[in-house]
């Protein structure tokens, strides 16, 4: 079972967490529950994009700080999980953008940097094929990479992805199909 489906069935429901969060007395407890419920999913969602653990740690904390600050304003017309995931995805994109402008490097150099940190990463336990797959994924444009990770590793339904990324299901399907073909080509060449 994917991490996505596994975590969704764990512990208190989102609605119960939200009710507890609105009560000042149980606010901290509710937030702790929320962190524990989603931290792994959010962490690995970001990690697949940023590769480096330290960067991922920073962005993950930033995401939860944003959630803490804005959960009061959450209007419940969308899924809490979708909302959290959207924050995480936006923060990750924004981090990658900042990194690129900070270092004055073009996008393909960011990909090179990420690829190098993958090779030197002490927290990468994958075998040779998984390393090749990760390096192939890094060759995709950012949004396509996110779509591929969400569908391939997290097995997320297209509808949920559509709400998170603000893109139509059709476009997401096309993006995923293209990504799969690109990765297959890279792996076959190697």
């Amino acid at each position: 079972m994917s991490v996505f489906r596994e975590n969704k069935s764990k512990g208190l429901s989102d609605k119960e967490i939200l009710i507890q969060f609105k009560d000042k007395n149980s606010r901290n407890y509710a937030f702790d529950l929320l962190c524990r419920k989603y931290q792994q999913q959010i962490y690995f969602h970001i990690r697949r994009m940023l590769i480096d653990h330290d960067d991922t740690n920073d962005v993950t904390q930033e995401v939860f700080i944003k959630i803490w600050k804005n959960l009061d304003k959450f209007r419940e017309d969308s899924n809490l999980f979708t909302w959290i995931y959207r924050i995480a995805t936006n923060e990750t994109f924004s981090f990658l953008r900042k990194k690129r402008t900070k270092l004055f490097i073009p996008m393909h150099d960011v990909e090179k940097k990420l690829s190098n940190s993958l090779t030197s990463d002490s927290f990468f336990d994958g075998d040779e094929i998984q390393m090749k797959l990760q390096k192939a994924i890094l060759k995709l444009p950012n949004k396509q990479r996110t779509v591929f990770n969400m569908r391939y590793f997290e097995e997320m339904p297209y509808l949920e992805m559509s709400e998170i990324l603000g893109t139509s299901v059709g476009a997401l399907k096309a993006s995923y199909h293209i990504a799969v073909k690109k990765i297959e080509n890279i792996l076959t060449k190697d």
Binding site: F44, R48, F123, F124, G126, D127, Q130, L133
Partner: peptide, 14 residues
């Protein structure tokens, strides 16, 4: 080819 690959998470944490 891709469907045959191991999908387990290769990333770990401290």
């Amino acid at each position: 080819k891709l469907s045959e690959l191991n999908k387990s998470n290769p990333f770990s944490t401290p």
